[in-house]
């Protein structure tokens, strides 16, 4: 799932303070699940932004609406009527959702209310862990299902570096050393030979804007 968190209110205000009719668009997909941009957050955020504006001597008509998924065009159409007379859009979707809104309503400025931070696991409601950097060349088959690109602070492929103490990363003692975890996992699975072989330099394939056409794609 895509994990996002809300930007500072003052930063969103500085982007939107010169507009009078603002539509805040939530997303019932990932950002709702991670408590960053669903219906409830839209309602709360609308209230907070309104108060903040008043406090700073500006005023705007704020509206809110949450779509099923901001990253799918089919769910964006229902917004068309609602965008009449709107002069700015604030997206509470992820970076993809925000960009689809910006594309569909390209005569209206779109501002992100969230920082999209990672692809991760939902450990508990409100507690998320980053697990994937979408590097485009999945290494998990060699590394016992633990991502070195994401979970190692240096993102190295022949770890662990010298910075591991008591199984923890030198960057932050709260973070386990990914390569210590990989070692233990591979040992448990009798696949420790993976740790003995040199992994060659990564082919970073996701550096250009990606387009994916799946086998199931049928042109309509």
């Amino acid at each position: 799932m895509i994990i996002a968190r809300e930007k500072k209110l003052e930063d969103i205000y500085s982007l939107t303070s010169s507009y009078q009719k603002i539509m805040i668009v939530g997303c019932a997909g990932c950002t709702a699940v991670c408590l960053a941009g669903g219906h409830q957050e839209v309602v709360r955020f609308k209230e907070e932004l309104s108060l903040y504006m008043k406090k700073h001597g500006t005023e705007a008509a704020l509206k809110g609406y949450t779509v099923e998924r901001q990253c799918e065009p089919i769910f964006i159409f229902e917004l068309v009527e609602r965008m009449r007379n709107i002069d700015a859009i604030v997206s509470m979707g992820c970076g993809a959702g925000t960009q689809l809104l910006a594309e569909k309503f390209d005569d209206i400025p779109v501002f992100p209310a969230l920082d999209t931070i990672f692809v991760g696991i939902s450990r508990e409601t409100g507690l998320y862990e980053e697990n994937c950097r979408s590097c485009g060349d999945c290494q998990l088959g060699y590394t016992g299902g633990i991502c070195p690109v994401t979970r190692c602070a240096k993102g190295i492929f022949n770890g662990p570096c010298g910075g591991s103490t008591n199984g923890r990363c030198e960057v932050d003692p709260d973070i386990p050393c990914a390569w210590c975890q990989i070692y233990e996992r591979l040992k448990k699975q009798n696949r420790i030979e993976n740790m003995y072989a040199i992994r060659r330099p990564m082919q970073w394939k996701n550096q250009n804007p990606g387009i994916l056409i799946q086998k199931g794609f049928k042109k309509q």
Binding site: A153, I156, G163, V171, I198, R199, P201
Partner: peptide, 26 residues
């Protein structure tokens, strides 16, 4: 591989780590 950038005087610069030390040797 080097000390992680967060320990230095530019903690939020982008660490490169295109390759690791073993790959550099190779």
């Amino acid at each position: 591989s080097g000390d992680h950038q967060m320990f230095g005087n530019h903690p939020f610069c982008k660490g490169v780590y295109d390759i690791d030390s073993i790959q550099l040797v190779s």
